[in-house]
């Protein structure tokens, strides 16, 4: 999907924020709680890391940006818990209002509907029986595709050609795993792209590499 999260090459974000020495891991106590809650919400909802990332991508612009990194983790946690009916849609808001002194009736806890899904192994690394389709040094092109759901193929690489730099360990495919449609393990390649292929002939020379799943790639015609 083309959501707010796919930021590579997009414009209008202003200057970068230079590093601040001694920055705390969590600037405010709620950020630490939100971080831990979000990690635990993956298990409580029966989701996986890919499905959680997809929940983050589906947040609207304000929910993604306005409360920063831990704000988006909190909002994604709430999303995965409400869409699996672990929590009623208004449960968090109602409780929060009551915490600040209101007296609203809280909704009853619904019956959870967790995804029918179980990982075949911990983590994301998986073996693939078929040989790798592409070799180090081979020229490949990222498919110009626009899947409606989760993908780890950034928009700015679609349709662009590069060279395989490394064959990485094979892994389950986030595009299907995020939707509980199977792990679909694939070979993974680090592909090196020239800056002028990505951004045009006048660009300063540099390279970008990205790890791309085999189904993202094709042989250039």
């Amino acid at each position: 999907m083309e959501g707010i999260a796919d930021m590579g090459g997009t414009e209008g974000w202003g200057p970068v924020r230079p590093p601040r020495p001694g920055e705390p891991v969590f600037a405010e106590p709620w950020q630490a709680r939100a971080f831990a809650l979000a990690l635990l919400s993956i298990r409580v909802s029966g989701y996986n890391v890919d499905a959680f990332r997809h929940a983050t991508e589906r947040l609207d612009r304000a929910a993604y940006l306005d409360e920063g990194y831990f704000g988006r983790w909190l909002n994604a946690a709430e999303l995965v818990l409400t869409e699996t009916a672990v929590l009623a849609p208004t449960a968090v808001e109602t409780r929060a209002r009551n915490l600040r002194g209101e007296h609203a009736a809280e909704p009853p806890a619904p019956e959870p509907v967790r995804p029918d899904y179980a990982p075949t192994a911990p983590g994301s690394l998986r073996t693939v029986d078929t040989p790798a389709a592409f070799a180090v040094g081979e020229r490949v092109r990222a498919r110009d595709m626009s899947p409606p759901g989760h993908t780890r193929l950034p928009g700015y690489l679609r349709g662009r050609s590069g060279v395989v730099e490394l064959v990485q360990p094979s892994a389950l495919l986030p595009d299907t795993n995020a939707h509980f449609l199977g792990e679909n393990p694939q070979h993974v390649y680090s592909v090196r792209f020239d800056s002028r292929e990505l951004w045009g002939p006048g660009t300063e020379p540099f390279s970008v590499t990205a790890e791309l799943f085999e189904s993202y790639l094709e042989t250039p015609s």
């Binding site: 939100a34 409580v44 909190l74 672990v86 449960a91 409780r95 915490l99």
Partner: peptide, 21 residues
């Protein structure tokens, strides 16, 4: 929109009360 600190506290309470975390 409620402040994230308040929503975080609410979420933690709800999940703890249910024994989910």
């Amino acid at each position: 929109r409620l402040a994230p600190a308040l929503r975080t506290e609410a979420l933690e309470q709800l999940l703890t009360e249910r024994g989910l975390i």
